[in-house]
């Protein structure tokens, strides 16, 4: 119970502290309007090229829009502690590092879920996509799985920030690569085999696939394998993030370079 409290309350406090530069205007512009136009861009491009139908682009891109908040948020959860000089205080805490950092991801994943839901709703309304009412709970589940996996992916990148000077380069490039490798915009059949393989180990790929199945009315049973794979990918990044944080923390202590930017 104490651990859950640490994850929940600690995560929310850290979110407020590290994300406090934002204003409602910035939040809406960057995290709601921007992703919506991303969806419209690819939906119209897909229509023109007739690569796939509207459902493919609207649902896939709605799931992907969570990546912006989650990947950058997860990265921020570690990198901004270092930037603001508070990482040392966090690492001095006698509580479990794993619980502290995993807890950081939860608010960002919630943020990502909100963005994905809003983008899907507005995108579907604007482009006239009908989604079966019964598919909505499953869709929210798929988007939540994708957001959580993206958050842990971001945390892994943030852990790299303990070792490398400019982790934002990695985050920006990663977000751009997710556009290409997750099969959200180009169907897997149109990508080279190695890109598809890489995509299988990235967040969003399986969540987008599950969400498309659900939006097509296939039901939760049909989408369950893809959902399970997404959760597995997320769990993999969660473990990788903790392992990297442990390794780089030890190294930073040995080299006295914890706060060196």
């Amino acid at each position: 119970m104490k651990t859950l409290r640490l994850m929940g309350v600690g995560g929310v406090i850290a979110y407020r502290a590290l994300f406090n530069w934002t204003t409602p205007g910035m939040f809406v512009g960057t995290l709601l309007v921007g992703p919506l136009f991303q969806l419209l861009f690819f939906a119209y491009l897909g229509r023109q090229l007739q690569v796939a139908d509207d459902r493919f682009y609207i649902v896939g891109n709605a799931v992907l829009t969570a990546s912006l908040a989650c990947v950058f948020g997860g990265t921020m959860a570690v990198a901004n502690e270092r930037r603001y000089g508070t990482l040392g205080h966090v690492l001095l805490s006698p509580r479990s590092r794993t619980a502290i950092f995993w807890g950081r991801v939860i608010p960002y994943a919630g943020n990502g879920l909100l963005i994905a839901v809003v983008t899907l709703g507005v995108g579907a309304a604007l482009l006239g996509l009908r989604i079966p009412f019964g598919a909505l709970p499953g869709l929210v589940l798929a988007m939540a799985a994708g957001s959580l996996a993206c958050g842990f992916f971001g945390l892994t990148l943030g852990a790299l920030g303990l070792r490398f000077r400019d982790v934002w380069v990695v985050s920006n490039v990663s977000v751009a690569l997710l556009l290409l490798l997750t099969g959200v915009n180009v169907p897997a059949s149109g990508l080279p085999g190695w890109m598809v393989t890489v995509g299988h180990y990235l967040p969003i790929t399986h969540a987008a696939s599950a969400a498309r199945q659900l939006a097509a009315g296939d039901g939760l049973t049909a989408a369950a394998p893809a959902l399970g794979q997404e959760l597995l990918v997320g769990a993999g990044y969660a473990v990788a993030a903790v392992a990297l944080l442990k390794i780089f923390e030890g190294e930073s202590r040995r080299r006295a370079s914890l706060d060196a930017l």
Binding site: L49, N172, A176, V186, S189
Partner: peptide, 28 residues
């Protein structure tokens, strides 16, 4: 600026790759 240069070097190539595969998939 290493950040500006890295972003300027990599992101357009990712976008170009995406565009090429999209147009190929669409038979264009």
């Amino acid at each position: 600026s290493p950040f500006e240069m890295a972003i300027a070097l990599v992101v357009p190539i990712v976008q170009a790759t995406l565009a090429v595969y999209l147009f190929r998939s669409g038979g264009e």
